[in-house]
Structures are given as structure tokens and as C-alpha cells.
Design a protein around this nucleic acid. Sequence first.
DNA 1: GTGAAAGCGCTAACAT
DNA 2: ATGTTAGCGCTTTCAC
Lengths: 329, 329
Amino acid sequence: MSTIYDVARLAGVSKTTVSKILGGSKNVRASTLERVNAAIEELDYVPSCFAQGMRKGATNTLAVLLPEQYNYGYMELLAGVEDYADRSGYMTFVCSTGRDGRYEEKYLKEMVRRKVDGILYFAYRRNEKSLAYLEHISTNIAVVVMDNVLRGERLDCVRVDGSGLTKQAVRYLADKGCRRIAYIRGLGTYDVTTERYQGYLDGLEESGIPFDAGLVQEAEFTMEGGAGAARALWSQKPEAVVAATDMLALGALNWLEENGVRVPGDVNLIGFDNIPLCVWSRPRLSTISQNQRQVGEIAVKHLLARMDEPDQEPSRLLLGGELILRETT
Amino acid sequence: MSTIYDVARLAGVSKTTVSKILGGSKNVRASTLERVNAAIEELDYVPSCFAQGMRKGATNTLAVLLPEQYNYGYMELLAGVEDYADRSGYMTFVCSTGRDGRYEEKYLKEMVRRKVDGILYFAYRRNEKSLAYLEHISTNIAVVVMDNVLRGERLDCVRVDGSGLTKQAVRYLADKGCRRIAYIRGLGTYDVTTERYQGYLDGLEESGIPFDAGLVQEAEFTMEGGAGAARALWSQKPEAVVAATDMLALGALNWLEENGVRVPGDVNLIGFDNIPLCVWSRPRLSTISQNQRQVGEIAVKHLLARMDEPDQEPSRLLLGGELILRETT
DNA sequence: GTGAAAGCGCTAACAT
DNA sequence: ATGTTAGCGCTTTCAC
């Protein structure tokens, strides 16, 4: 590995001049520039990022913290993040914080240590400690919190409008004439759950449908959970079912099919997330789509904006989505 | 951010002593150690990784280079990689090299610049330049090539035994009594394609079945490709079809079903990869599974071994897999 | 058992 | 337009 000193010697200049050229300074004679560039080329020289980081602080690196090892839903999103970051001249460091986010603090500290310029923080589960730490470091490092429902933390935040979109689904069903609209919600420990559920409630109200507790089932975020909820719900003869996630909806669909219930003939069904499996079920699942790739891009854009204007007031971005009608409605 | 100097001052010692303690030296008076540790605690001190990297070279970081943005098949594998790396005290840097691996060289250089201790390189498409570069840097950085069929490069390599496993599938079908076994291979540009196809040929030979060119179709690695191949193949009345990937097999399955061919009644079908969709098709697809998580762990283990013994001869690991019989056989 | 001093590769302030 | 100099925070001889 050759150093800036080697380049300087080969080009017959001082290392300051080389450094200036590397930094893109214009105050250089053309002939000097040429010689230095030739030397760089010849030696295959690349500046050490440690020395640079030590002097400059900035590293041109973004970190993405993701819960649960590589959940499939994040793939498109990551693609969006990396693409946009790359186009803006940033590298991306992806860290999965493990189930229950048990590595969150460890990775957070490590990223600070590595002086990343910005952090994109994902977590469905609210972690007070991490949030407090993020707020603490946000004076030095740009931070954007994703998918979390903030309560008072002074942090930027981007998330999908789970409430509004669920409401939209409910209203669609109501407009179609359904009155007995059931809801399969996830476990209560997540903010996302509560938020989407609120959308269900709002949708009922706006459609003038009275709430019926018997039409709501809570279930684990799995297909089994969805199947169980469908079984419990079926005795209530719903005309439509909205589920908090596609997995839940798919589980319900499976149970309904196996028990001779025709979808959408006997009951309508709408999921949430638009995971790839939706087009593989029979009938194919209607759902709410968030355009994950775009979410990723917006997240990075937001992060870069924060880096540019560190003193701006924290802002919250609510992202829309789309009702995708396939064959279960 | 406090520095080692702050710690030294607070503890009333020199920074040398602090550094020694950080490095785990035993030659320290107990009282000194206590004072220093207290100071570290109080200042929330974390050594700068730039200064460390500059002095030591090593960074306790591994890089994974992946082709095509977050292909689903890699998720389990990455989980294996990260878990094992973490347990061994390493951070993992994940870089997706984009479609056609167009960012390969860029990222490779960046990783070298960041002095990662090891690189896990994935790419189905052979890239001479990248391979040459990897060979070049392998004297300084541990490198393990994944999934590539090396030709003479002096590099460690881990890959799944595509040939042997395909052979196993063919022999299974032959043992079941099938004679007319067709094969859907991928496009010829990939080494993996050739390798798996060779397994088909070997399987036929070992089973004493003469090769029939009419029973082989080449197709793009998509469901559409698989469907087209199935259509072309059907006129040849095969008793069984083996496909180079699950996507191909699933496409074929779709076409067969839609054209009234019963699977496995009229024809047996086996895929390769065991992607999650396999259990979602009807009937569920029999396939060859590679235990991706384990592949990831083995890859890291191999990389760490190389780091320990930089002068060992390059080795090639061929990983086995498992024939998973579901409902298409 | 502890410290002083040199230097890793780079940038930036200050000459010239 | 180019060079000199002084560190960034750390580890590592080498003294004491």
C-alpha cells in the first residue's frame, strides 16, 4: 500500500500538493496536476480512510440498523437505500440488530465509534434505551428513525401511514356494501399494531358502522396466528376481513379455503404490506402496498437533508401507500 | 468524544499506561488498573477506530460482497454469516454489487481501503477482473470466493456441489423407474449452470439411461423461462423433469397445471435451491436444499481459518445438500 | 510498573 | 502555486 508520501516523491512535489489535488483544489499548475495524477495511477494509490477519518471526522458512510436478521420485507427497502446513498456518494453499512433488537446498543455504539455520518434506525419494538442514546448522539450524527412512533423524542422520523391506509381499506369495503368488517390485529406490544388498528376503528366510524368487539381478533404475526384468528372470527359471520399484515391474511385465507369458505364469494379479505407471496396465494391476496424501494430512498433523502441542516427542527414524514385489489375482494 | 489522553489525565497516569490496559496487559498495579477503569467508565471512553486502524492495520471487520441487490436466496446465508462472525468478534460489512456486478470493483477497492480483515466474495457471473484483483490482494487480506467455479486462481473457495446434488436427483428418479428424464437448464453464461447440467449428464450415465438432446431445454432463470421450457418439453412426453432452479421448476409446474398435466401423476418434478416459495406451490415442490444458513457459517469459518494461516495452500470446499421430497415426486 | 518519544498517513493553517 | 509544520488519537519501542 503506497502512501501519499510515495506519490509526492514520485511526482516530485510535496505531499501537501498531492493532498490538495486529492481534495479537488483548482490552484494547481496543469503540468503538476498531470504528474501527480500519473503517479497516483502508477502506484495504484488510494488514500487511507483511517488517516482521513482521523483528520476530517467525516467518513462518507451511512449505517442502517435493521431488526431481526434480514426480514424479507426489507430487501426492496435496502435496495432503495443503497441505490440512493450510492448516487449521493455514500457507502452503506448494514447491521442487523438481531431478534428483539438485542444487539441494538452494541451496533449503535460501534457505528458512533466508526464515525458514520448518518444512521437510519429501524425497529418495530420501542426501545427506550436506544431511542435515548440516539437522541443523545443526534447532535453529532444525523439520525432518522424509521417505523417507530416517537413520543416526544427530538428526532427525525419517516414511516408509513398505517392508520390512514388501513382506514382506506375499511372504507373501500364499506363502500362495497360490507357492514360486518372484521379485523385481525397483531400482538399489542408493537406501535405499528396499535396504529393500524386505529385506522380500522377510524374506518368504521367514518363509514357509520358501529364497533363490534366480537369482530376483532388479536394474533401472533404468523400464518398460524392468522388461521387461528379466522377460525375464531368465522362464527361471527363477517362479510369482510382486514388483517394487520399479509402473513396474517394469508394464514386466514388458508384456513378459510380449507374450511370451504369461498373468498371473495363468501368473504372479502385484505392484507397489509404487499409481500411477494401475495401473488402466489390462490386467490391472490388484495393488500396495501407501501413501495418499499421508495421508502428507502426517501429515508436516505431525509437523512442527507438532516446532515445538511443539523439545526433544523425535527420533522416527521408520513408516507402514503396504495390499495392493491387482486382476487380476494 | 473523549480521547485516551483525557482518560490518562483523569486517572493521573500517562496515556501509555492506559493503552497498555486497553490492550489487556498484566503488568499493571491493581490500584492503577482500578483508577484507569473508573476513568474510562466515567468518560464513557471508546478508543477511536481510526487511530487504532492506523496503528494496527487490523479492524475486526469482514466484508461480504453480494451480486444483485438482496436476492432473497441470500437472506438465510447472511444470517449465518453475521451470526458466526459476531460470535467470533467480527463486524460484518455487507455490500451489494448491483446487477451484473457493476459495482464489484468499486466496492472491492473500498473494502481494501477500509482495511477489512477478510472478504467473502459472491458472484455467479465470472468476472475476470475482480478475480484477478482478489488474487492480487489475497496476500494481504483473507479472501474466500463463494459459488464461483475457479479456474487456476489461487484462492480459497466454498460452494455447493451442484453437480453431485443434481446427479442425486436424477438417480432418485431413475431408481423410481423413470427413464425419460428431462432437464431444464439455465442460460449458458453461468458456471453454476454448466455444473448442474453436468450432474444431470452424470446421473443419466450412472443410471444407464442414454442421453436424448430433445429432453433438454435451455431457459432464462425466470418462471416464464420455466413455463416455456415445459411447453417445449411436453411434446417429448417426459416422465420426469429436473430443473436447474426452483424458479424454473415453478414456472414449469404452472404451465403443466394449466395444461391439464397432473404432477406427480403424469410427470415428476424436482427443482433446486429450496426457496421459500416451494412450500407455497400446489402441489408443493420437491427440490434440493442447501441449508444456506450453514453455508454462511462455513464460509466465515473458512475465512477465519485463512486469516489464521495466511500461507496455507488454497483449498476448495464442496458443500453437500439434501433432496427434499414434497408433493411433485 | 510506568512514562517519554516517535510515528502511522493524512489535512489544514500558515508561510513563501 | 507550492512547501513547511503541526497535530488528529493511538500503539510501540525503549528507558527508567
